[in-house]
Every structure is written in C-alpha cells, then in structure tokens.
C-alpha cells in the first residue's frame, strides 16, 4: 500500500451559536445527514458518500469558530509512533478515550504553533447512510441540497506558519503542494497527506486558532452552479463566487453558515503525487492565485474569520 501514516481529514468540530439553525444549514442546504446527537448536545453529521461514522461535529457555544480537526491514520499503531514523533518534536500530547465521540476509537491530540488543536485517530465505525459496496448503485439515498460528497479540507488562520509547515512535513509526513511567499515572508501553505491538492491549509494571521473555512467536495462545476442557486434561494450569506482558485485549481463558492463560519463547496483540483515539486506564488500574482477570475483578493479574504 502506497499510502501510510496520515490518510486524510476525518472530522472537524465546529462551534455554532444556534444549533437548530446550524443543523438545518448543514443538513438541508449543504446536503449532509444527521447521524446522531450526543448526550452533551453535540450533533454528528456526515455525507451519504462517506463511510466513517461522521465528519462534522457541531458544538453549541457562545463564540463561533473551530475546536479541532482530526486526521485519520492507517493503523492503530500509527497513533503510538506519531505520539512519539510529536513528543520528540517538543509538543505535548494528550489522549482522548474511545467513545468520547460516538463511533470513534481512541485519539491523540496536540496544539501546533498557529494555536490550532490537531487530533489523530485510527478507528471509526461505519454509519448510515453510506455508499453501497456490492453491485453498488451510484447512490442509495438520492442526493439533496448542495449534494456535498465529503468533508474535504479546512483553511486555518494563525501565527507562525513557518513552524506549522515544518511540523506537518517533518512530523506528520505531509507535503507542501503550494505556497505563497510575500516580501515579508511566507503568507500561506497548502498541505496534503495524500493525492489531493490539499487536506489542510494555513494563512499567516496575528490571532491564533482561527477558522477561515471548512470545505466540502462536490461532483463537478455544474454542482457548484446548483449550490449557488441554493445560496440565493435560501438567503445564505455569500462571500464570493462561483469562481475558481488558481491555487489548487478548485472551482468554488465561499459562503457562511448561520453562525458566520465560512463554508466552501468546490469541485475539481489537480492530483498531487508525493514526488511533485511545490508550486509557488508571489505578491505580483497572489490575487490570481486565490481568485483566478477576479484576479484580486476580496476585502474579506484576509480579515473575516471566526
């Protein structure tokens, strides 16, 4: 097997101000399904295209934003080897017992230089709805809303992204697919654990631990257009799009959930192989890198986060 260690993003825990509004947004509009609600009020969601128990956790809170992102690793023993590597790097590691979230095995967690909590887990139960695997139809349950196929990646904002880059590449074996270098230093990095153009990305920002967006994969450009129709029909707060990123080449829309957390739905993007070089952007073309058609950043890109 070529892919070892960290496989992909597994789930993300997002803070919301109004739980019923958030559940309606992510299920009926984005197109996810509610798997269950925990005794502590957290709500667990997934796409019908995902096998594992859940990919989005909503937590009611007084402040919007993100609690953590968890990546799935290939084997339980990877949790022990990564714990040693993270500790050897100098970061504290804590343990979350199996069952703290329904259907998920033990996790390890640590906080990186940008102020974000990262977790790793190896085991998740399957939950319904999930894709059929014997003589499989394209879907058993007809897609609805924006027809999100999976929680794909997140973009975080925080300080010290040079250290974040070093940590992800040397400790977690990620590759840097693209980066933006400004005259005053590294501005942004797109990191991948597998063959997608990105599994997580970071932009330099003075406040630690911020969420720029969580992103859902759609089937194609036509689906992105349909998502735009839904955004207007249901008066969802739009940020920008439909447009395209030069970086990763994804066709995209940015919009906001009812608590102001930015969402993305996107399609496409190139395939990354671990032997490929890092693609780089500089200050002269950064606008085209972020928004390929507008060729300039919108005012919200660098300033509006939760």
């Amino acid at each position: 097997m070529a892919m070892t260690g960290v496989l992909r993003p597994g789930f993300i825990q997002v803070r919301v101000l109004d739980m019923p509004a958030a559940v309606e947004h992510y299920t009926r509009r984005v197109g996810l399904h509610q798997v269950t609600e925990g005794a502590d009020g957290r709500v667990y969601l997934k796409s019908a295209e995902e096998f594992d128990h859940h990919s989005i956790i909503l937590r009611r809170a007084e402040q919007a934003g993100v609690d953590f992102i968890a990546f799935k690793v290939a084997a339980d023993s990877d949790l022990d080897s990564f714990e040693k590597r993270v500790k050897d790097y100098g970061y504290a590691v804590d343990h979350v017992a199996a069952g703290e979230q329904p259907g998920v095995g033990r996790r390890i967690g640590f906080t990186i230089a940008s102020g974000h909590r990262i977790e790793l887990f190896a085991q998740a139960e399957l939950s319904d709805p999930k894709p059929p695997i014997h003589n499989p139809d394209i879907w058993n349950l007809e897609p609805h809303g924006m027809a999100a196929r999976r929680f794909d990646h997140a973009l975080f904002y925080g300080p010290e992204i040079e250290k974040v880059l070093d940590f992800f590449t040397t400790v977690l074996d990620f590759k840097c697919a693209e980066r933006v270098d400004m005259p005053d230093g590294l501005l942004a990095i797109w990191l991948t654990a597998g063959m997608k153009a990105h599994d997580i990305a970071f932009v330099k920002h003075p406040e630690p631990g911020k969420l720029h967006h969580l992103s859902f994969d759609l089937e194609n450009w036509q689906a992105v257009g349909h998502a735009a129709d839904i955004i207007t029909r249901y008066d969802i707060s739009i940020d920008i799009g439909p447009t395209r990123h030069g970086i990763t080449r994804g066709q995209t829309i940015y919009f906001f959930d009812p608590s102001g957390n930015r969402n993305e739905v996107f399609a496409g993007g190139y395939t990354y192989y671990p032997d490929l070089p890092t693609r780089t952007w500089d200050e002269t073309q950064i606008g085209k890198g972020i928004f390929y058609y507008e060729r300039q950043l919108n005012p919200a890109f660098l300033s509006v986060v939760t």
Binding site: L17, D18, E62, Q63, A64, G65, S237, D239, F256, D257, P258, S259, G260, N261, R262, A300, S303, V304, V305, T306
Partner: peptide
Amino acid sequence: PVGCRRGGCGVCRVRVTQGDFHADPMSRA
C-alpha cells in the same frame, strides 16, 4: 464593513444610540 453577515466575525459592529431592536445570538468573541 461587511463580513460573514451571521454574527461570527465581528466586523460590522455598531453602537445603537436610539431605538428598539431585537437580536439573534452573536459571537461573544
């Protein structure tokens, strides 16, 4: 100044000096 339009990012802050309104939840950040 317009940001998320849903109470999360804080960029549209105003001080109401007169009049009555009701409010949705907004981020305590």
